[in-house]
Amino acid sequence: MDLKIRDVGHAYGPLTVLDGIGFEVPAGRIVCIVGPSGCGKSTLLRMIGGLERPDSGEILQVGAPPAASLNPLTFIFQDFALLPWRSVEGNIRLVLEDHRLGAAETERIVAGVLARTNLTEFRKAWPRQLSGGMRQRVAIARALAVSPAVMLMDEPLSALDAQTRELLMADLVALWERERFSAVYVTHNLAEAVRLGHRVIVLSRRPGRIREIVDIDMPLGERTGRMAELEAHQSRLWALIRDEAEAAEKELVGG
């Protein structure tokens, strides 16, 4: 299943936040959206996931999602969004319960995603007992449980420290190598964008418009070994958004 975003625009009252956004998310590719804070990138992601309605334009699913997919468009949130009153296992079961899969099938899925994210021994743990990185792994396991066609990741590593972020990025690359999922990955971190993105979409600051679309042809698995080339991509992206990031920085909150 591909996604097609066509001429999406949105305004909060008199404030235009998104204008004329159009791009495609081909199956099996990771599309990163970067831009300075306040450029509307999280709003755009929520629209792609059907949690908000754009004022104009449309978001289209091209082709049917795989039959096995329980929830084709699945989010991974910056703050993990785990229920603190449910264990690791309970949080994964939460998203399966409404589908009435039967005890055996549910158990098979839960055990499967826990194994794929190396969480099997933490099955009974409470979220509060886990570190930030482990919590995000639980959220990834929960997302995998519903076999998404497209993962919608909203700054998934931004609440984590630099070392954990590095580990999880390697995890995500390994996961992509195995599962070849499609994803829209919103971040303000350019290093993440060039490590994980097949395509990087650069948004301008308010109103958010597409400034440039950068394709990075290097296979994800090789990228840690070719940091110098990535560095060039990253500098180029930085040159694109530097001035606007600076302007965003100086803006008064709510002004």
Binding site: N71, F77, A81
Partner: peptide, 16 residues
């Protein structure tokens, strides 16, 4: 609110 949005994003029913 993010927990409620999470529930909606996974297609949970209103009652759930």
């Amino acid at each position: 609110r993010t927990l409620i949005r999470m529930g909606q994003s996974f297609g949970l029913s209103w009652f759930s």
